[in-house]
Design a binder for these strands. Structure first.
Lengths: 197, 197
DNA sequence: TTATGACCATACGCATGCGTATTGACAAAT
DNA sequence: ATTTGTCAATACGCATGCGTATGGTCATAA
């Protein structure tokens, strides 16, 4: 009979554990660097165990990436989507860029690995959702549909570029302070200000 | 005695030929996908030839990437640097994003491969040069030093993000027309307008 | 206490890709 | 005509990494 695995019981591994470890590797070294034998080593077992839990490497990637997407959606809906003022939404979203680093690192790594079909599919959906959200927010701030769409793309793509730059040259330049100032500049530059007279 | 190779003489290959082929592969499949045996196949020879021209794979990457950087600098200095009006410089630079696709594809591919030390070094220099140029241009347009720096980063990183998105989902969405409109929106949004009264 | 199912180790086959060693072909110089 | 230097083919060794096959351990259910 199947065993009921409790969180603290680390006597044996579950699919979840493997997916979690996979996401960790992806975050720091990218999808290409994800090797099952290395992963098994990290988890203190051999790959004989891996192939009991998953059919192959691709199945792991798929499961891990979809778990990330799921978590991404839930986190978003528990925070930003609950705000009503569009300007506040955007500001919070922008400032989020430097919090919850792990999730952003995964995002960035996945964005660079769209040669893998499953990853491409997921990043497709993620991009669409985020750009749509941004477009709606800019429309609510009074921009016309066309401008809002372009501004949404500009916003999203500057986010993509920032993460890539920040991740790859991280030991480099730009203190935490500078990053904060940069984000505030972006807020000033991209979010239309409401001058109520 | 060494043979003097003319451009049209394709009876045998030169270092340049290998570097050119390497850059082409990098542009379309990234640095990681660069394999000497596959490259030799593309050039119609075997790898026995490759190791006569280069010590190893890394030497090829280094030579190819540095050739690209060199060409990048020269192209820049032959066009944009020659303009005097900073606003014109920036506009031309932005609109360049959709021309000379090959060079942009290489840029984007290299930016995703900074795990390779030589590539990291080159992209480091390239990034610095471009951000510096943008910063100076924005300052010439009247922005203060701090704002100009941030705006330069925002500009550069949105460029990085755009290329990555455009490359990876290229068959997808966004017609040439849409891209043009997007670029014009970016120009409007990021370049301060001179209202002379 | 025996049997079953969950989890893992060991050992293998196979493909890819780097780098080396050796030999060959062919043009230009002597 | 012979030699020398340039470019390339062939064949090998080696490492990595995927996937499979098979057997072992250990808890729990019967």
């Amino acid at each position: 009979m199947p065993k009921l695995q409790v969180a603290s019981d680390k006597s044996s591994l579950t699919e979840r554990d493997w997916e979690q470890a996979a996401l960790n590797t992806i975050a720091h070294q990218g999808v290409a660097a994800l090797a099952v034998e290395a992963l098994a080593r990290d988890l203190g077992v051999t790959k004989g165990s891996f192939y009991w839990h998953f059919a192959n490497r691709d199945a792991l990637i798929k499961a891990a990436v979809m778990r990330w997407e799921d978590n991404d959606i839930k986190t978003f809906e528990r925070s930003i989507a609950m705000l009503s003022d569009p300007s506040s939404k955007l500001r919070l979203l922008f400032r989020r860029t430097i919090k919850e680093i792990q999730s952003h690192l995964i995002f960035s790594a996945l964005f660079r690995s769209t040669d893998h079909p499953v990853v491409a599919e997921v990043m497709q959906r993620v991009s669409e959702r985020r750009v749509s959200f941004l477009t709606r927010s800019y429309e609510e701030l009074g921009m016309d549909s066309s401008a809002a769409g372009h501004r949404a793309r500009l916003t999203y793509l500057s986010y993509v570029g920032f993460l890539q730059y920040y991740q790859q040259f991280k030991a480099l330049r730009m203190s935490q302070q500078e990053v904060s100032e940069y984000i505030e500049h972006v807020i000033q530059s991209l979010i239309p200000q409401q001058h109520e007279e």
